[in-house]
Design a protein around this nucleic acid. Structure first.
Lengths: 199, 199
DNA sequence: GTCTATACAAAGATAGAC
DNA sequence: GTCTATCTTTGTATAGAC
């Protein structure tokens, strides 16, 4: 379930979304403008307003698309009953590892979290939902791994899930700020050690 | 060493710094304006420019003061040879726990990290320095605790320090976004468990 | 040190031609 | 769907009186 039907959009609209996503990830929502998109794509500001009447509309569309991308992957992973829990975990981590390969990419929602009170309410709600969903998903996989004897936790699954999720989000921001791509890989290494090196 | 002589500043300048710090922590650097300060303090925008000629000047001053506050505490903590390592750790965590008590406060540098590429270069460098300093300090205390037999690590101190620091920064952002103040306390609980529940 | 007044640019947004 | 033109508001910043 849940493979959301991708909204049919024009090619231009997709390009706008792509660039807006990158701009938000690197400069933040408040600091990017229709002018930046205009410059980047070689179209006029008015044309962007045709596709996304207001900046809020554009912001929501960017977050929705981002959240849906992750949501589909999470649902698929959760449905797989056969794969070892650590393998599922590794699949979950792939997008994060992907961010590690670039100098200045972080999780869209992680970037937005820093200016959450400056965001339109609709965007705020979606970022919050993203965080909740991911932490709930991580809780499930930790419980599954524990039940199967694959993980050994030092704390209740819910708390440890929060710990892992926070570490991933924080690591992305620190990685970019310090320009040290090993930050994320180190975090993932330690996290795995802690899941298998039980008490 | 290092108890930086606090720059002598007028009362108004201090009030401006206080409010600017709060505004950056809640709305971000790009989204706050001299008008916000003007409204909040009941002074004119031009008066703010008298104290801080440009927004960049103000931003740098805010970060410098914030970094110095932590820097002094870190230096004092590191100098204390007698205290148990976990007690030192708890002192380090106090400011974070303080953030947990408020709905919308996060680490200034954590908030800035989300829009790092939109910041003036001077601010960027300071945020980066803050992250490096804290991770180095955490590495030291972890090594100390291990040498004394107080901590048991599952990974090299440097990597585990990164994990802890990332988790703290990430937890602050998630806490605010979800409005769930237990996020930080949970993270701290798990972190302590992991330091004492060795392999 | 704070004010009024103002300059100047950028941002978000709309109208209407093509 | 994209353009030119224009509007309005806000943001940063300066000049100069008090």
């Amino acid at each position: 379930m849940t493979t959301t039907a991708p909204k049919q959009r024009s090619e231009t609209a997709d390009k706008i979304l792509d660039l807006a996503e990158t701009l938000i990830q690197t400069r933040g929502y408040s600091a990017f403008s229709y002018q930046d998109i205009s410059d980047g794509l070689g179209i006029r500001k008015a044309s962007i307003h045709y596709h996304f009447p207001s900046k809020t509309d554009l912001g929501i569309a960017v977050v929705d698309r981002y959240v849906a991308r992750f949501g589909d992957a999470l649902a698929m992973l959760a449905a797989d009953e056969t794969r070892p829990s650590m393998a599922v975990m590794e699949l979950y981590l792939e997008p994060y590892a992907g961010f590690a390969d670039t100098a200045d990419r972080v999780c869209l929602c992680g970037a937005l979290a820093g200016e959450i009170l400056a965001l339109p309410a609709e965007m705020r709600a979606r970022v919050e939902g993203f965080f909740r969903t991911h932490q709930e998903w991580l809780t499930k996989i930790l419980k599954r791994g524990t039940a199967r004897g694959e993980f050994r936790l030092v704390a209740p699954a819910g708390k440890q899930a929060r710990f892992i999720f926070s570490a991933l989000q924080g690591a992305l921001l620190v990685k970019r700020a310090t320009g040290d791509a090993t930050q994320l890989r180190d975090i993932i290494t330690v996290m795995k050690m802690q899941l298998t090196t039980g008490s």
